[in-house]
């Protein structure tokens, strides 16, 4: 699993890479654990414009379908194609190989309200 201590977190259980124009997003280890075995992802197409807080994709396990919300506004420039055939990568490595999409961030200031890993863990009672 990639190091999660540098990532930024949302209260809706997404993570965002901290720096750069293009940043990957994914769901947290806590979120994948709650969902159980992930068997399906409905990823957006590259080029899609997304707004912070908007549901941009769905991750599904037999138990539940979960919307994933954009932690920042911008353009989806890449999606993790490996997930289509093997969505369980999200369960195995949520902060690394299980990333979902990469977004070209249009307003870096939007990340100011996001949590550190320590604060996120506190928020979920870990």
């Amino acid at each position: 699993m990639a190091s999660s201590s540098e990532l930024l977190f949302t209260s809706s259980h997404e993570w965002l890479q901290p720096g750069g124009d293009v940043r990957r997003i994914g769901i947290t280890d806590h979120a994948q654990h709650l969902l159980g075995d992930i068997v399906y992802t409905d990823l957006p197409k590259p080029g899609k414009q997304v707004k912070k807080g908007e549901a941009i994709l769905v991750v599904e396990s037999p138990k539940a379908a979960a919307d994933v919300y954009a932690p920042v506004s911008g353009e989806v420039v890449e999606v993790n194609g490996a997930l289509e055939g093997e969505p369980s990568i999200i369960n195995q490595d949520p902060y690394g190989a299980g990333w979902l999409v990469a977004i070209r961030v249009s307003n870096p200031g939007e990340t100011s309200g996001m949590m550190s890993e320590a604060d996120y863990k506190k928020s979920i009672g870990e």
């Binding site: 159980g36 075995d37 068997v39 396990s61 037999p62 138990k63 369980s88 369960n91």
Partner: peptide, 9 residues
Amino acid sequence: PVTYAAGQL
């Protein structure tokens, strides 16, 4: 229990 340690799949 919905699942045990191994998980549904």
